[in-house]
Amino acid sequence: MVDSGEIEYSRRASRQRLIVFSLLFVVLTAAGLYAVYEQFAGRSMTFDTRLVAPETLIALFGLLLVYFVSDGLRLHFTLRALGHHLAYRAIFRLVFINLFFSNITPMATGGGFAQIWYLHNHGVPVGRATAATTIRTVLAILFIFSLTPFFLLTLKPLEGNMIAGGVETALAFFIVLYLGFFIVLLLRAHWLIGPLSALLRGARRVHIISETRHRRWQFKARREMLRFSQSFSDYIRGRLLFIGLSILFTAVFLLSLFSFPALLMYSLDYNVDYLVSLGLLVVTTFIMYFSPTPGAAGISEGVFGSFFQSVLSGNHLLLVIVSWRFLTIYLGMIIGLIVLQKELVMNHRRVR
């Protein structure tokens, strides 16, 4: 039987970690914005009412709708290819929960765990949930990693840029490392059973977990790892319609994500080269994947400012960065926090 004091302690520790990560996110974001203000924006920022004009708000709302809906549908059809069907309402709640967790935890680790926890609570086995979220991530990574070398070599705003130069140097190494990890994870997941078992044995030796919990977790870890390995094969053998739609909506999701800066600049009457704007954000997103800070806070603002300083005037650079991050990150995080609280309340009632 689980000790109630242990459960309460775990809950308090989780809340404290979330508070710490949230504060870290805010501090790093402020530091990143200040760095842009100092280094790239000429210490200037002007609010422009054209960003709140009715036609601009309608266009931004439409793009936001595509962004959130396609994010939900890419996971929905990945699950369908694996033979699982969740209600659309549950899928779209998960979109916002994921946005919240993935942006307040380093390297987006919390987003993956939160999705698996949520899907498991809605009847999807842990191994299948892990496979679904991993496959969804891999599809996005394949798009981004394939496009980044092309834009690095062709975009004029990146010529002579120190950050872009560093990316070119590290690009091949990170692509091989990242894709190699996911290939092992997807095609040879059983290779990870040994290291995972060793990790659990180590936790038992230092008394982090009890003997009973060690045996239970060993069994579950092996079972879910084998389920995960089988799940990728099931995805490949799934209905072509669902596989195709999961890939299509991944592309739509990324295209909508990369289109926000172009729309914001168009609203400010800039002569926007859409391909340049899209390419700069693809490279920015690539760098964000390797950021150790929660939600790439601080780093994303700095990289965006460095890349777009030749495209935007100083007084608009910070304004566009804040607007871009608000639309793609902050807004979803706020909604996600609200949805998470409701989900935890409903989960608590089900347990009782």
Rank of each mutant, 00 (worst) to 15 (best):
M1H: 10
E6C: 06
S14P: 01
S14E: 14
R15Y: 09
T29W: 06
T29K: 06
T46I: 13
D48A: 10
A53G: 03
A59S: 12
F61T: 12
F61N: 09
G62D: 11
V66T: 13
F68M: 15
V69Y: 08
V69R: 14
S70N: 12
D71M: 15
R74S: 12
T78S: 07
R89W: 06
F100D: 00
T105L: 11
A108R: 13
G112C: 11
I116A: 08
A129V: 13
A131W: 03
A140Q: 15
I141W: 13
F145I: 03
F151R: 04
L155F: 07
K156P: 10
L158M: 10
F173E: 00
L177S: 05
L179M: 06
W191S: 00
W191Y: 05
L192F: 07
R201T: 14
I208K: 14
F232Q: 00
F232H: 09
R237P: 00
L240E: 03
L241D: 00
F242N: 12
I243Y: 01
L248E: 10
L254I: 15
F258Q: 07
S259R: 05
P261N: 07
Y266K: 12
V283I: 10
P292R: 13
H316N: 12
L327P: 04
L327C: 08
T328Q: 05
L340E: 03
R349W: 00
